[in-house]
Design a protein around this nucleic acid. Structure first.
Length: 295
DNA sequence: CGGCAGGTTAGTC
DNA sequence: GACTAACCTGCC
């Protein structure tokens, strides 16, 4: 078995992709889309998704994936990392804009993941008016307390719990354990709605971004920004353009040149970058944070 | 040490 | 519709 456009070396419970372009674990991890990749002492990252563990490490021009084999990789992780997407082309197109050309230099090797919908929804509900260390901490606590334990030679990790598991919890107890504060009620309510299939998450893979947004915003705790994040980071809606405080700063600084409303910025981004708005957002976000632009 | 954070909501106008 | 305070908690 081989994977199109990739040169693969199979190892014992690992595979290596040789000369892999557009794959920088640090940038993928730190561009704001995911909260659970764990940085190990050897600079590798371990992640858990769909009940599976994977360890990823960049070694010069190669990427080593431990804890998997070619069969599983092509079935699960290929899709998770969206390896069929041509980032060379995306970067080439976006580089016509001089500001993005520079941003891409900072954030080369970013990829937008296809994360699990339920985990992504809850993670971004937690992100509201919150700080990254706290967001990560809460997600970790929730997984350890309500998720499933997985032991492997990579270590012990916990999967993110299902909607069914979170939906049956009592708000007060959950709040005390998770430290999510006022977001606790929103999380439990959203879990119940999803568990009861009152909204159909699978349908969101097929619908337009705007339709998906309308659906997601029915969930408590999911507003304009969080829904754009979910659509981009779980459902690959490349035309989504989440405007958080960093993107607001960078857009005002370089493009709008004035104090602007979130909605205004979102519309500007969607119009300027079109189908690639989400990718542009990722490069700009990383650039803004690295350079502390506008702060 | 206190203001404030990768927003949403409910309540005003 | 557009605008604004309040919100848990613990980081910076």
């Amino acid at each position: 078995m081989a994977i199109k456009n990739y040169q693969i070396k199979e190892g014992k419970n690992s595979i290596t992709i040789k000369n892999m372009e557009d794959f920088n674990p640090k940038h993928i991890f730190e561009c704001g889309q995911a909260f659970r990749w764990k940085l190990e002492e050897d600079e590798s990252y371990t992640l858990i998704s769909q009940g599976r563990l994977l360890n990823v490490k960049k070694e010069k021009d190669d990427i080593v994936f431990k804890g998997t084999n070619l069969q599983e990789f092509s079935q699960i992780w290929y899709n998770y990392f969206d390896l069929g997407r041509d980032y060379g082309l995306i970067k080439k197109t976006l580089s016509k804009d001089p500001i993005l050309k520079k941003a891409i230099l900072y954030a080369d090797g970013i990829r937008i993941l296809r994360q699990e919908p339920f985990e992504t929804i809850i993670s971004f509900i937690i992100s509201a008016n919150n700080q990254i260390p706290r967001i990560k901490n809460s997600i970790e606590i929730i997984s350890e307390n309500y998720g499933e334990r997985l032991d492997s030679h990579l270590g012990t990790y916990y999967s993110f719990p299902s909607a069914e598991e979170l939906g049956r919890l009592e708000v007060g107890a959950f709040k005390e354990v998770s430290r999510v504060g006022f977001r606790a009620e929103r999380i439990i309510e959203t879990s119940k709605i999803i568990d009861k299939r009152e909204i159909d998450l699978d349908s969101l893979y097929k619908t337009s971004k705007n339709q998906g947004k309308e659906t997601l915003m029915q969930l408590p705790g999911v507003g304009p920004k969080v829904s754009e994040c979910i659509l981009l980071f779980a459902f690959s809606k490349g035309d989504a353009f989440p405007v958080d405080t960093w993107v607001k700063r960078v857009m005002e600084h370089f493009y709008l040149k004035k104090e602007s409303k979130l909605k205004e910025i979102e519309e500007f981004g969607a119009k300027k970058f079109g189908k690639l708005a989400g990718y542009a957002q990722q490069y700009l976000f990383y650039y803004a944070r690295e350079e502390k632009i506008g702060k």
